[in-house]
Nucleic acid binder design. Sequence first.
DNA 1: GTGAAAGCGCTAACAT
DNA 2: ATGTTAGCGCTTTCAC
Lengths: 346, 346
Amino acid sequence: MPNGGRPTIVAIAERAGVSIASVSRVLNGQAARRDTVERVRRAADELGYVPNAVARSLKDGRTRQLTFAMPDIGNPVYVAMVRAIQAVAKAAGYRLLLHSTDAVAEDELAVVRSLGDRTSDGLILCPIRIGDGHLRALARAAGPVVVIGSLPPGTPVDSVRADSVAGAADAVRHLHGTGRRRIAFVNGPADTVPGRNRAEGYRAGLAACGLRYDERLVVHTEFGIDAGTAAAGGLLAARPDALFCANDQLALGALRALLSRGVRVPEDVAVAGMDDSALAQAAWPPLTSVDLGSSERGRLAARLLVDRLAAGRSAGARAAVPFRSTTVPPRLVVRASTAPATDPPA
Amino acid sequence: MPNGGRPTIVAIAERAGVSIASVSRVLNGQAARRDTVERVRRAADELGYVPNAVARSLKDGRTRQLTFAMPDIGNPVYVAMVRAIQAVAKAAGYRLLLHSTDAVAEDELAVVRSLGDRTSDGLILCPIRIGDGHLRALARAAGPVVVIGSLPPGTPVDSVRADSVAGAADAVRHLHGTGRRRIAFVNGPADTVPGRNRAEGYRAGLAACGLRYDERLVVHTEFGIDAGTAAAGGLLAARPDALFCANDQLALGALRALLSRGVRVPEDVAVAGMDDSALAQAAWPPLTSVDLGSSERGRLAARLLVDRLAAGRSAGARAAVPFRSTTVPPRLVVRASTAPATDPPA
DNA sequence: GTGAAAGCGCTAACAT
DNA sequence: ATGTTAGCGCTTTCAC
């Protein structure tokens, strides 16, 4: 039995002694005789009727569902995005379908392609690696997509990006300003967009301070707490007086590595992270971090998607709305982990 | 236009010169003449055909979607559950729809009721307060529900629960075993099921150790990092030598409160949490915590749901399978935050 | 092996 | 104001 024995408008129509069309009208708030309205309402109530959303979707071609595909549901940054997207989606009458892709490209592509099955009306995609496969898939997506991340110009989707280059440079300059001279860098994978951008920002920051790039002070690893611990441990041999980490998880891991070795933070080594996630405030000492506007990016992406969906519905020509790309500026949040060292650096 | 101009089986049928029935058969891997198979496959490829999941759902009454409704997507415990559920769901051919209810009862009820709209085939619900409204909604749910949490016996749903009473008692006994005598308790809200259970376990633990219950050592607050910081700060006046916190977020907050005041952990005050989430390992010092089997509960809940769905499909009588309730045992994970004090307690 | 046709539950012309 | 009917895209009898 295709339907689990649930009442449909047919059952209501019979019970109320009217046609299914009248039932549909009443239930959708259209004009009808007072008497009819009442009988239908009562019948629906008594039967515990709930409209079948699938049938409605088939009829009008929309599911009122949005999909958000992120690399890692365990990262507070994406949690912040989810919250922001959720709020916008809910307000616009959409449910949110979440997908954790583990940053697997094949998974991300599958999500884009699955727009074709009409399970959701639109997609917000947050990839950390963007290859030709992505660009091709995006170009032929069966529905509107908003990408959170950096895309080559001309890609036919809306996008929202963080300016992590500027953010990383800010952090380095800040560390330099507190008297640090050997600023080490714990970065994520070099083949990711965030990884590349942060590396660029780090170098720019060093240059702006007149500091030399020293590859012994730089390490690439995965984004993650344990990775941060391991990387920071290894970096200590190079005697840094500051650790700039490409995200808060790495910074938290680094913090643990330092404290467990009796290294004082910030007296001996300053630590700064990126994302300004919940972790940054929760840590001890509280972590200086570059806010890359995760919530804001989520909010904007959702708005972009919802707006495009609304445009498409009324005008018919969705692509007629030009594609937009917004950049959210970074903001350095200074906390105790980068207080100036009392002793001058060695 | 209800369909965004996407190809349907009709288009494929025309192109391949066969009927839509043949297209459907070929696409579903049923027997057909070699020639037919090829023509259909090719046509589908050329058109970039993707089956419309909505239409399929309407036809066979299933969406292949599962819903997980949790109180707070920011809590690592639920993230762990999501991961476990996701894995089972994916393996069984279901997508996962995530809902963050913020522990608002009305939201939770809405989710249960929305099973009626056939948007998903089943629901995993993780409420922290359970009232009459919940029980009534569960009793008339339009589809299978699995609850992660404690339910009155006889409620017509499958359920998986943690034994947080035993877990809390374990933690208290452990702290006592390391020489602590003034064991304070930072609990969540008293009107939640977890809050009540942990309080009960705390008292049981004290009793087992021959310790007296002292209300000055107990505080109730919200579950959350900042709440933990505030609560721990207040508790210090009562001169505890250990802080047992009802979850890791509270413990992390408490840790921050202690360290910021120069209180040494574990030398002056030991700290223990519950859930053994990622936070416990990330903290410094690493946090002793009671593993309540979040992943395991998620996994079991998903299994229960998937199994019931499978049973219903073949047998027809889904409720014929008796409702099951499983309890996952707690496991104390000892880390540095509760190492024995070198000095005897004052 | 293949096609015609019914029907899943709903909405929206269109007719009355 | 209300009823009849077509149709959204698909699967599945039932004939041939």
